[in-house]
Write a protein that binds this DNA or RNA. Structure first.
Lengths: 254, 254
DNA sequence: CGACGCGTTGAGTAGCCTCAACGACAGTGG
DNA sequence: CCACTGTCGTTGAGGCTACTCAACGCGTCG
């Protein structure tokens, strides 16, 4: 794994785990991170139906994308962490089809399609990297289908916590097994298709058996091995290979 | 919408709905369809863990990809119809992470990563098309998250039938509201996170109220408007715009 | 004809939901 | 500094939806 530079953006940290960026690439990636916009905690960033003519790169903070059901209930589609690119998959669509809300104070970079096209023009390695990220993203979505379709409350919560943990590790924002956790139990419930009551029960029970520990705004995974086993967890980020993309010289060196 | 040529492959039909293929593109797309391999009904095509060094284009027939839970239950991740590209998203991964089984007799074309790279080299328009398809695919996955997370049995079944219907229409394999439906109720149940019993109840109830009609191997949607309303259905294929991809001259003409 | 897969229906159960009350806590304003 | 307020998490009682288990009929295919 490539060492990360001090002050690097989360997306650059992520990229650095898969390829050695050269100067041009570093600069291009940096251009995505320009002029971040500050967003206050708990504010709506985009509303459903808005034209999907730009995307966001998360610099810092957590966000949720979700849809509202006719009866008012919510389904969280994705939790967005630093380094995430929001709206990539919406490029072929005329408008956003979900709501986007900040959980914490955030710093977001706004991109146009032009920025992405620029990358596609100039650097096949970064293109391959971005597309690979998107494909892995899709994999994590199918993993969630398995969770929502076939798992009980307890396992849903376990799976969610694990997948959050490994994502935070990718951007060096987990200290061992401890990480910031700004979601309410309502948020978590809407992410895994439960109610806050079931989430509360599941978390309490897991804490009681010593699998995890909560303190305000923090989460600690105490028995990661047990939890991985319980849900047959697969870390999709472990084994990404971006060399499938054409024009790529073998790029990864550890 | 471009008229479809007689005998065209389903993928070409699909492409034709979004762009006017020129000769080169038609040929390249055709090269994906070469030498289809025949697969008998109900056979395992790939098993989990196999190296993901090739992909499949479905020429004809239905397939399921699914995972098995530790307790033996199944979660169907995707139903694959003619024109689908299977394994696109697995390219950055070392191995398939699901099982693939044929529901009917199938005809499959096997591609290597090289075929895809070839397209990426030679024609930005087809590249944009393929990537757009993948992105739309991801959208349908998030739609399913909403279904599995927040819908009751009846609505799950409705949503599944509608999404199947619109996909079949895209490849000209639905006659109005009637289409071949080779899935068992077990298959359907595993696709929407239910049991065969619940599916049976839901289907019976829908038939009784006159929303649909079943005959062996066939399905007819009688009250599409009602069903769309019930699940707030969005047809993701209606409004794909592939012009976001760089190098694309404005390509779509109706 | 028998075997098997599939669909249907019923009875009983379990897990999660709904509703509700309450305590802890942070933020606000006096 | 302290009430006041609203959000969040917890816990309990009761209900409902979908599940489990089971039996049976039907059609298909050896």
């Amino acid at each position: 794994m490539v060492r990360t530079r001090r002050g690097e953006s989360p997306l650059a940290i992520l990229a650095g785990k898969y390829l050695n960026l050269n100067e041009d690439e570093r600069e291009l990636l940096g251009s995505l991170d320009n002029q971040p916009r500050r967003i206050a905690r708990n504010s709506e960033v985009v509303r459903e139906g808005r034209a999907a003519d730009n995307l966001f790169v998360v610099q810092s903070g957590w966000l949720l994308s979700y849809t509202i059901m006719p009866d008012g209930r919510r389904q969280v589609l994705q939790v967005h962490l630093p380094g995430d690119i929001i709206g990539f998959c919406d490029m072929p669509l005329p408008s956003f089809t979900y709501e986007l809300k900040s959980l914490t104070d955030c710093s977001l970079c706004m991109l146009t399609h032009g920025h992405i096209q620029d990358i596609f023009h100039k650097t096949p390695r970064l293109t391959g990297f971005l597309l690979s990220l998107m494909m892995v993203d899709q994999k994590t979505h199918t993993d969630r289908l398995r969770v929502l379709g076939r798992m009980n409350a307890r396992d849903r919560v376990i799976h969610f916590l694990l997948s959050t943990l490994v994502r935070l590790r990718m951007i060096d924002q987990a200290e061992g097994n401890i990480f910031d956790f700004p979601m309410t139990q309502f948020d978590l419930a809407d992410a895994v298709g439960l109610t806050n009551v079931s989430v509360s029960n599941a978390l309490s029970s897991l804490q009681e058996q010593g699998a995890l520990k909560r303190s305000t705004g923090k989460m600690q995974i105490l028995d990661e091995a047990y939890m991985r086993e319980a849900v047959s967890f697969i870390n999709r980020f472990e084994s990404i290979d971006i060399s499938w993309f054409p024009y790529l010289p073998p790029a990864k060196d550890k």
